[in-house]
Design a protein around this nucleic acid. Structure first.
Lengths: 130, 130
DNA sequence: ATAGGGCTTCCAGTCACTGGAAGGTCAAGA
DNA sequence: TCTTGACCTTCCAGTGACTGGAAGCCCTAT
């Protein structure tokens, strides 16, 4: 199976799959003509990676998770540690974004948004006391 | 005022201020020795940029906002448009992160996290049906 | 034979910095 | 006066995870 077909099968861009090979996440064998030849285990790994990335894990976390996935003697505690750390980072990001959202939505609400120059958004950014 | 003192005054790294100059967001004059010499209006701009960045605006959005800030004949509608667009992006990001959080927190909760290999997190990433 | 689509590699760009090297400048102390 | 150390300068490279594009090979169908 060539890269185009594999890309369609796992819903990842071909470019991304090449990149994953370059950084050693997958190692498809090659046909005599130099084309990558993907087999089912490659596709399985790629789907794993796609799902892990969709959950926001970094590439290095994906690499670690994939290694654990393939290690029959793993301890689930290691997996849970990675996931918990990531979960905490997600929570932090959400909190940061919600703080931005709170401030900004208030400013947007109070801005007339017409043709006049007066603007509480710029006033706030400019440091004018509330 | 040299860059170090300016950096302390506006709570931005000196490196960042140099970068902002490089991309044309600030234009401090120079002393005879080549050192940047910041005056109060430079600091004011830098504080504006710091606050806008803290609200998550991109550099290009900051550039646009700063231009509007300095344009006495601006229309607040332009500002509001930029801010509203950004607000929508923040909301999207929050929704994405919350979806990740929901999935992942469920998986983490159901993972024993001990020395055994069984792990619902890896099972999910591996595509095993629930 | 040729046209097209798919494949290959390699290089550059993204965003907003950040780190570091090599070297000039300045104020204080011995 | 000399030196030390803390500044400052520029320039180059790296970050994360791709993405776009160029140049060129391969395969199939007409």
């Amino acid at each position: 199976m060539n890269i185009g077909e594999a890309a369609a099968a796992v819903a990842l861009p071909a470019k991304t799959i090449r990149y994953y090979e370059e950084i050693g996440l997958v190692r498809p064998r090659r046909d005599a003509n130099g084309y990558r030849a993907f087999v089912e285990t490659d596709l399985h790994k790629l789907r794993f990676l796609g799902r892990a990335r969709a959950l926001g894990f970094s590439i290095e976390e994906c690499r670690a998770l994939l290694a654990l996935y393939e290690d029959d003697s793993r301890a689930s505690g290691e997996v849970k540690a990675i996931a918990s750390k990531h979960l905490a980072e997600i929570a932090t990001k959400i909190a940061d974004l919600r703080a931005m959202e709170a401030t900004l939505s208030h400013l947007v609400e109070t801005c007339a948004g017409d043709g006049r120059p007066d603007c509480p958004i710029l006033a706030d950014l400019g440091g004018e006391p509330h």
